[in-house]
């Protein structure tokens, strides 16, 4: 790289892996919310809980019912979680499916980062997350499990990734929150809650184990709620990937 370009933006660029308009503010293993990943885009002090643990678990139970109702071949189910937020949700959904219909869906985790369409436009590369697809997806009914869906671009990337693993019989999408602002023709089959938002806001799903012996505590918050007119610059920045 020639000297004039050595003023590269590694320090000035946004935090690693900032998934601005969305979700994913937690780490599945440590359970530590990485809430700072959205700090640059929204005002975190203006944070409002829109779904608490009880409501989220009710929604997951309702969606499990819907899945049982709309799928005749439960043995073909394959829950594919999109990290980070999708992982604890898929775990909970699987437990619900087991208690409802004694069905034990296959489970996988699939990072979509390498399939994103905005990599070239960013100043830094996002950190990769785990991909683990232990069994074949061929002929399975895949349900992609995501915490917050907005533009639909992550789901697009996930579908592309999925096709590299095989040929599922069908692919459906479950999202805990649909916050609108779709940019691609993506339909959500199982929705926890529709939360209409302004583009400048950020919807974050968190799962925190408050004690190791206890179950995780889920919550969904909306950040950057603001009475002032939407800041165009901010809107542009956070309108990206979900």
């Amino acid at each position: 790289m020639a000297p004039p370009r050595t003023t590269s933006p590694d320090s000035s660029s946004p935090p690693e892996g900032a998934k601005s308009a969305s979700s994913a503010a937690m780490s599945p293993d440590a359970g530590v919310p990485l809430a700072s990943s959205t700090a640059s885009a929204v005002d975190q002090s203006r944070e409002r809980v829109v779904l608490d643990d009880t409501k989220i678990r009710r929604a997951l139970m309702r969606m499990a019912h819907e899945i049982v109702e709309s799928n005749t071949d439960l043995g073909a189910l394959y829950l594919v979680a999109i990290p980070n937020g999708g992982v604890p949700l898929a775990r909970c959904l699987a437990a619900n499916l087991e208690s409802l219909a004694e069905c034990q869906p296959r489970m996988g985790t699939m990072d979509t980062t390498l399939y994103r369409d905005d990599l070239a436009a960013r100043g830094t590369r996002p950190r990769l997350r785990t991909t683990e697809m232990p069994s074949s997806v061929d002929e399975s009914v895949v349900i992609l499990v995501e915490d917050v869906v907005s533009t639909g671009r992550t789901i697009r990337a996930a579908m592309d990734a999925l096709m590299d693993f095989g040929r599922p019989r069908s692919v459906k999408v479950m999202a805990l929150v649909d916050r609108g602002h779709r940019e691609l023709p993506i339909k959500i089959d199982y929705v926890g809650k529709n939360i209409p938002t302004q583009p400048g806001e950020s919807v974050v799903f968190r799962a925190k184990p408050y004690d190791k012996s206890e179950e995780e505590l889920f919550e969904v918050v909306v950040q950057g709620l603001d009475d002032s007119p939407p800041d165009l610059e901010r809107t542009k920045k956070s309108g990206g990937f979900v």
């Binding site: 990072d111 390498l114 399939y115 950190r127 990769l128 997350r129 592309d160 990734a161 590299d164 693993f165």
Partner: peptide, 23 residues
Amino acid sequence: ELILETAEHMQEIGTRDVKKVPT
């Protein structure tokens, strides 16, 4: 450490049938 962590994730691609991503 970032390079090593990223490489660990890349190893998974080598275990797939289709050993290619469009990145």
